[in-house]
Amino acid sequence: MRGLVISLVVVATMVFQVTVVNRIPWPGGSGPDLVLLAVVRLALTRGPVPGAVIGFVIGLTADVLPPADHLIGEHALAYSLIGYATGRAGLRDRGAVTMILCAAGGTIASAAIGVLLGDERLTWAAIGTVVPIAVAYNVVAGPLVLKLGRSPA
């Protein structure tokens, strides 16, 4: 039952991300990535194995969620790695600091994986200008998601 509620919340978050968050012209050019933060939040209290599985499932859904113009599996790969790493970190400490570090690391990691998979839009130069802004937004939004997620998750 709780699983069902969580999956509904996750799907709602993903739709909210593409219909609302991404359409707001954020100062600096890029906004917070709520889907990434949801992966980090869920993996944080559940350990590495569930973290990796949750990351994979959410990532695969993000790959087929329109509008998508990249290879299927790109997000699945990135998010399962992020879920695993966050789960490991969560074994030691489940506080806001871990959340922030994992959110920042995850933003950088998913961009880097895009480059490594040869996504032609992503270049190291572009990452240098856009990723720091995205990291900043995710770091700010991270603790908020942690607070919101405390009751159902």
Partner: peptide, 25 residues
């Protein structure tokens, strides 16, 4: 537990890479 975790992660990453390859080809 750590070994099991790494194994699961390895499987998931392999599936993701296969998906990427199939989609790309």
């Amino acid at each position: 537990d750590t070994r099991r975790a790494r194994f699961t992660l390895g499987i998931l990453l392999a599936i993701a890479l296969i998906l990427v390859t199939v989609d790309f080809r």
